[in-house]
Amino acid sequence: MNQYPEIEVKNLTKNINSKQILTDINFKLNHKSHLVIIGGSGAGKSMLIKCILGLQSLSEGKVYFKGNNVSIKNERPEFLKQIGVCFQGNALFDSYKVWENVAFEKIHTKQLMSRKIARDNAVAKLLEVGLPTETADLYPFELSGGMQKRVGIARAIFSNPDILFFDEPTTGLDPLMSRKIIALIKEIMASSMKSAITITHDINLALSLASEILLLHEGHVEWSGLKTQIFKTKSKLIKEFLKGTIK
């Protein structure tokens, strides 16, 4: 096993037009753990994920993936090969069929795969996330919100990545569908034994998925620790967060 954590964020700071969006963020994502980053709107959750993924440049600090500094551009392609991202709005490509979306990386990058094999693999992943084979040849706009979310998850897990990122996985879904998606994520995490980072504003979702929780508030880490410790903390903000949401 690798001696390094899966992901380590050190002193990450992000400024936009001299305004500090994220301030001195530090945390580790350990093997087989599921870190859920919670926080209210505008806390900097999405920006933090974008900084980790390299979608936004860092003003200060470093991001390490298995000990390699992936804040350096040259190290990033290898990092990107080993992650899967499920976006808040699914970010499916409208002009490609569902199976082409799922197998996108394999049919469009250097790790080329024949279209037939790619399609078969994509169909297998679609079945894994609970979508019937017939959906493979539809276009994303022909699917419901819940089905699109499942396609997004299928795409994220297609290459069997080491780390999964879920950005607000239940936003925009009805409560029933939200529960189904949470169950699906749990099932994927249990069967794959991989690590994951989820961002959400929903404490119920956090408590349901997390092994570790990090509370982000106004761009800095307010509290972080194991899920089991959250009810024992003296952090006022955590208490408010728990009271505000948990019935």
């Binding site: 974008k50 993924l53 390299g54 979608l55 392609p77 990107l80 090969k81 992650i83 991202v85 976006f87 808040q88 709005g89 970010a91 499916l92 490509f93 409208d94 996108f104 990386e105 469009h108 990058t109 795409r155």
Partner: peptide, 17 residues
């Protein structure tokens, strides 16, 4: 709609693609 971000995370440079 974050499709450019998705392209990037799928190891596909949006400029080239």
């Amino acid at each position: 709609t974050e499709q450019l971000d998705a392209l990037y995370t799928l190891n596909t440079n949006p400029y080239n693609f």
